[in-house]
Design a protein around this nucleic acid. Structure first.
Lengths: 127, 127
DNA sequence: ACTTTAGATAGACAAACATCGATGCAATCG
DNA sequence: CGATTGCATCGATGTTTGTCTATCTAAAGT
C-alpha cells in the first residue's frame, strides 16, 4: 500500500504548471493530489486539521463535525493521507492527524504565476 | 448552464484554507475547482494553455497532443471552463482558449501558509 | 448551394468513487 | 480476562466520471 510518494513529486524544484507544459508523468502524480482536494468533505477535513493551533487534531474531534458515518470520515482521511497532504499518529486510544505543509507549499508554488506573466488582476473578466 | 461562478468564489478576500476551518458552502465551491484539476489530461491542458507565450492556444493545437478523441478533449476543456480556470473565444473557424489567472491566483493564495504557521520546511518528514 | 473542416453536444458504457452497515483490531478500563 | 471505546478495513450499492462513436452546428472554400 504505497503511502503517498515520499518526496518524489517534483524531480526538479518547481514544475511550474503555469510556466511550462507539464509532463505526462508529473501530471499523473499531481492529479492524484488535486483529486484528493476535489471533495467538500476532504477540503473541510484538511482545513480543520491545518487550522488547528496545536497542529494536531484527534479524529474524535473531526468525525462528529460531519453528518457522515465514522467509516466514511476514516476513508476520506485515508485519501488525504495517501495524497501526502496529512500524516497520522496513534497515541494511546486516539489517532491524531496533522498537516504536511510540504505538499500544500508545493501546490501553492505550482499555481503561482511566474512574475513575468503577472499583470493587473483587474483586467481579467469572467466569460 | 451556469458557466463558472463569476467572481463569487470568495465572499471575503482569502478564505485561507490553512488558517481557518472552511465553511461548508465554500468547501463545495472550492471542491469543484480542485476536482477540475484532479485529472492528468486537464492538468496538462491547463498547463499548455497557461504556458503559451501569446496567452492563447487554438484547440487545434491541443487536440493532437493527446492520444484521445476530439470529443474527449472538448469535454475536458468544458470542465476547466466551467470551473472558471479558462475562457474560450471563437475567431473564424477556430476556438482559442486562455487562462483566467484570477482563479489560479486564488487557489495559490488559499494553499499558501499564513506566515504565522510557517517554519523550516526541512523539519517535515514523509510518513 | 454543396463540401469540408473545426469544434461542441448527445447518448452509451465501463471504471472509479462516496457512502453505508458490519466487522476487525488495538488500547484502555473494570 | 472480558467489556468497552476509538478507529480502520471489508463488501455492497447507487452515483459520478472518463471515454468512445455518432451526430450536430458554425464558418469557410469551391
Amino acid at each position: 500500500m504505497p503511502e503517498a510518494f515520499p518526496g518524489r513529486l517534483a524531480p526538479e524544484c518547481c514544475p511550474a504548471l503555469l510556466g511550462a507544459p507539464l509532463g505526462e508523468e508529473q501530471a499523473v502524480e499531481l492529479a492524484r493530489v488535486f483529486k484528493a482536494l476535489g471533495d467538500p468533505v476532504r477540503l473541510r477535513l484538511l482545513s480543520m486539521i491545518a487550522s488547528r493551533s496545536g497542529g494536531e487534531v484527534c479524529v474524535c474531534d473531526l468525525t462528529p463535525a460531519f453528518d457522515l458515518s465514522q467509516p466514511t470520515i476514516s476513508h476520506h482521511l485515508k485519501l488525504l493521507r495517501e495524497a501526502g497532504l496529512i500524516a497520522s499518529e496513534r497515541r494511546g486510544t486516539w489517532v491524531y492527524y496533522r498537516l504536511l505543509p510540504a505538499m500544500t507549499d508545493r501546490l501553492a508554488a505550482l499555481l503561482a504565476r511566474p512574475a513575468a506573466q503577472r499583470a493587473d488582476v483587474s483586467t481579467e473578466e469572467a466569460s
